[in-house]
């Protein structure tokens, strides 16, 4: 703190609006908005668009708040990793206290307003998600077990459950399957990123699977998860939200996922190759894969809405 020419006290560490926005972890927020939004749309036909919009804003703010709290707690390891060293706290743009208060405010604000806009069940689920991400994943699991991302991945899998609860005030079997889909998708997605940023994690001493069990074991786990993921995502085809479109395309998407995981498994890992082409391919494909599956559910929903007899017609055609 210094005193300026006009006798006004100035903090040398004045964060800009963009620094605060960076604290929200926009990429994670985007995933939460998209998956919750799709779940909200496909679960009900009579949700008011303004209530849906208000609820989506609350879910986004909740995700942003937990992102800020995660950055507050992890600022010491963020500083050491190349990928995260430019985040606002390690970069000195925002102080830890500012990030903490911003995160706490957004988290409480989002839960209260979700309860007012939608219902108590969805607000309770949002509060649980934020608490799970901060207290269980960030503060406990991340620095203690190599399976941190397996259990911690549940936090990222909750948004479809919240979205479903917003429009139906229940937790259906379909929403649970959507939860399971993201829950099983997270480990192969994140471990492929870990293979690319392995050097960073070895500096920080975070017990990632690549460090504790080695690259080979991680690749094998990625392959096993790709198979379990395929089963769980194809099962969705046989529920109320699935259908023929989803079934056919999810078969293709899952086959490619398993193929990339297999290619990664059989190819030797070269830590000196800075490009990591196979790892990057799987990482980028996993993002596309999840986006496409949720998009297919949306297409399936609107097809049923516009052509209610489509499932019967296709069934008849198959029998012919």
């Amino acid at each position: 703190m210094i005193r300026s020419t006009n006798n006004i006290y100035l903090s040398l560490n004045e964060p800009s609006a963009l620094d605060y926005i960076e604290l929200l972890k926009l990429k994670v927020m985007r995933l939460a908005i998209f998956t919750a939004g799709v779940a909200m749309i496909i679960s009900s036909n009579n949700l008011n668009p303004f209530i849906a919009l208000g609820s989506i804003i609350c879910i986004a703010l909740g995700a942003g708040g937990s992102g800020a709290l995660n950055m507050w707690w992890d600022s010491d390891i963020d500083l050491l990793m190349k990928r995260t060293s430019k985040r606002p706290i390690p970069d000195g743009k925002i102080t830890s206290d500012q990030a903490l208060s911003f995160g706490v405010f957004l988290s409480i604000f989002s839960v209260i307003f979700l309860a007012l806009f939608a219902n108590f069940l969805s607000a309770l689920l949002l509060a649980f998600t934020i608490s799970f991400y901060i207290f269980i994943y960030t503060m406990f699991l991340k620095r203690t077990t190599p399976y941190n991302i397996v259990i911690g991945g549940a936090a990222g899998a909750f948004p479809p459950l919240i979205g479903w609860a917003v429009s139906t005030n229940t937790i259906g079997i379909e929403s649970f399957l959507l939860f399971l889909l993201i829950f099983l998708w997270t480990p192969p997605h994140f471990w492929s990123l870990c293979l690319i940023t392995k050097k960073d994690y070895s500096i920080t001493k975070v017990p990632m699977l690549t460090e504790t069990h080695g690259v080979k074991a991680t690749k094998l786990q990625i392959f096993i998860y790709a198979i379990i993921l395929a089963i769980s995502s194809i099962i969705i085809s046989f529920t109320n939200i699935g259908g023929y479109f989803y079934f056919i395309f999810s078969l293709i998407l899952n086959s490619i996922f398993i193929f990339y995981a297999y290619v990664l498994l059989i190819n030797p890992y070269n830590p000196n190759n800075e490009n990591f082409p196979k790892e990057k391919k799987l990482f980028l494909y996993s993002i596309f894969y999840l986006f496409m599956l949720f998009l297919l559910l949306l297409i399936e929903h609107f097809t049923k809405l516009l052509f209610p007899s489509y499932l019967i017609v296709v069934k008849d055609l198959i029998w012919i």
Binding site: I2, S4, S16, A17, Y20
Partner: peptide, 18 residues
């Protein structure tokens, strides 16, 4: 100090606008 003050005021202005 003047440059610093201007810079800080600019940041505050944009933050308040957001």
């Amino acid at each position: 100090l003047n440059k610093l003050e201007n810079d800080i005021n600019q940041k505050r202005k944009s933050k308040n606008l957001w």
